[in-house]
Nucleic acid binder design. Structure first.
Length: 484
RNA sequence: GCCUCCUUAGCUCAGUCGGUUAGAGCGCCGGACUGUUAAUCCGUAGGUCCUUGGUUCGAGUCCAAGAGGAGGCGCCA
């Protein structure tokens, strides 16, 4: 008999029909009720072990092995449930044990376990309600990313994972090499001879697909990338990974304002997709956060529940301010006047995360775009704004800041003027030969264009309310961590 | 890279001022249970107090070093 997925049974229950379901045991109550879970939805199907099963086909060995997270297959008829809590239940006719799960040796238990503990048991943690909900939503966000862009006529570009460019300007890189580390070939002057390496040059894992994305945008108009990204930073925070996934749209003819419009519309679409399609998973995660916050001080609790907050974000315009306005707001704040910021706020200095949190969580209480940052603190490819005061030059950069997790999006209008770009490359000590192709884009049929990078895991973190980014990726890679 | 905190039963934790035999809840195991919703009830077992060294008559408790983990900052997505 072909098996039916639990989500199908729950969606359109047909009483009296014979079905076969397979899945993992969540609980076995009263030696009679099995809560069975197969991953197809958040919910379980209640399997009832009837008297007839006991009388006629009683198999004590199998019943004893119906234990937490054991894998079984059940055939039987669907019936209206006599108990509260579910509409239908499956009256077992036969039960097959597919994989036993000996509780004495198993790592998980039907109770609250800490996130840290589960992180060490990453091969089993997806069986828990929390992680199964998180990973169903993670999938759905990824799907929504492709659907959004496809429906709007964007092309999905696969930019390279291995890069020969050393000037992407986004942090420390992982080296890629096949050279024998115990016996490195040297040039006459004693440097490592990468001519003998696999690619005959020094190569690294990509930190961004943006520069290649710009190439595509200069031909296909609207493109996006969605791929793994690698940063070899020694970051020990709840929002950094060494290997993460990033979405980078790049659009010809867009300016910084079009860029913000796109970012806001895109992010709202992603959230709406989850609100509309995963209410059960969201409700569970919502409740989970409330339980977790029960023992916290009022001040530390979230002002809104998870689903309410997501709805709020979708229903309201994001705030849009300039860096200069942000500095004014911060310097006029009581927090600043009382000297409660650890770091000073001063035009020309980058905003610290305590400043960003103040803007988002205290002042505006919603997502905020900050744009037009000082030229001196931003990357070479960002377009210099016209008409600024000397000493107060800015670039058309924008960051989108979210409550609890900070920067989710960083983007800019790109510098399309060849002369200006060359100037900025030189000012930042980057050799133009490294990026000759990037410069040529400005020489041959260039145009204004803009794009941004959205941290996929940070988005999933926001939507699921998970506190640590390591808990929204199946197998986190971070400094000092590459298990599983 | 800088700073802070944590490590006691399978899990979550308590353990007073350094003082006899280290505790609880949950889980496990055994038993009971024909309408449960993390079912409930009864009973048993379970410990290298992270490691090493030191102080002390005496260390889970104090000190030092090491290991592992978490968090804050910076960097950013």
């Amino acid at each position: 008999m072909k098996r039916t997925e639990i989500t199908e049974i729950l969606r359109q229950p047909e009483v009296g029909v014979e079905v076969k379901v397979s899945g993992w045991v969540r609980s076995f109550r009263s030696n009679r009720f099995i809560a069975l879970y197969d991953g197809s939805s958040f919910n379980t199907l209640q399997v009832v072990v009837p008297d007839s099963y006991r009388d006629e086909k009683f198999d004590e060995e199998i019943l004893k092995k119906i234990q937490f997270h054991a894998c079984i297959s059940v055939t039987g008829k669907l019936a209206e449930s006599q108990g509260a809590g579910q509409a239908v239940e499956l009256i077992a006719d036969s039960i097959e044990l597919l994989g036993e799960c000996v509780p004495e040796e198993y790592h998980l238990q039907p109770k609250n376990m800490t996130m840290e503990y589960l992180r060490e048991k990453a091969h089993f943690r997806m069986r828990t309600q929390t992680f199964s909900a998180v990973f169903r939503i993670r999938h759905a966000v990824a799907y929504a990313v492709h659907k959004y862009f496809n429906d709007k006529g964007y092309y999905y570009m696969h930019t390279p994972i291995v890069t020969g460019s050393d000037a992407e300007g986004a942090g420390e890189m992982f080296r890629v090499t096949t050279l024998d580390l115990d016996n490195l070939p040297r040039t006459e002057s004693g440097e490592i001879d990468f001519k003998q390496d696999f690619f005959e040059k020094s190569t690294n894992l990509t930190v961004s697909g943006q520069l290649q994305g710009e190439i595509a945008a200069m031909a296909l108009g609207k493109i996006y990338t969605f791929g793994p990204t690698f940063r070899a930073e020694q970051s020990f925070t709840t929002r950094h990974l060494a290997e993460f996934w990033m979405i980078e749209p790049e659009v010809a003819f867009n300016d910084i304002f079009d860029n913000m419009d796109l970012a806001e519309d895109f992010v709202k679409y992603l959230i709406r997709h989850i609100l509309d399609n995963y209410p059960d998973d969201l409700a569970f995660l919502d409740k989970r956060i409330k339980d977790e916050e029960k023992n916290m001080k009022q001040d530390d609790r979230r002002p809104m529940g998870l689903a309410d907050m997501l709805r709020f974000v979708v229903d309201n315009d994001f705030e849009r301010i300039t860096y200069t306005e942000a500095v004014d707001i911060l310097r006029n704040s009581n927090t600043y006047k009382k000297g409660k910021f650890k770091f000073d706020v001063q035009w020309g200095k980058d905003l610290q995360s305590e400043h960003e949190r103040y803007l988002v969580e205290k002042h505006f209480q919603k997502p905020v775009f900050v744009r037009d940052y000082p030229k001196a603190i931003k990357a070479f490819y960002m377009r210099e704004n016209d008409g600024t005061e000397p000493g107060k030059e800015t670039v058309a950069a924008m960051d989108c800041l979210f409550p609890y997790i900070g920067e989710v999006i960083g983007g800019s209008q790109r510098e399309e003027r060849h002369g200006k770009l060359l100037e900025r490359l030189h000012a930042q000590g980057i050799h133009e030969e490294e990026l000759w192709w990037y410069l040529e884009l400005r020489k041959f049929g260039g145009c204004p264009h803009a794009g941004f990078g959205l941290g996929f895991e940070r988005m999933v973190q926001f939507i699921t309310g998970m506190g640590n980014i390591r808990d929204v990726i199946a197998f986190p890679r971070a400094a000092g961590q590459a298990d599983f």
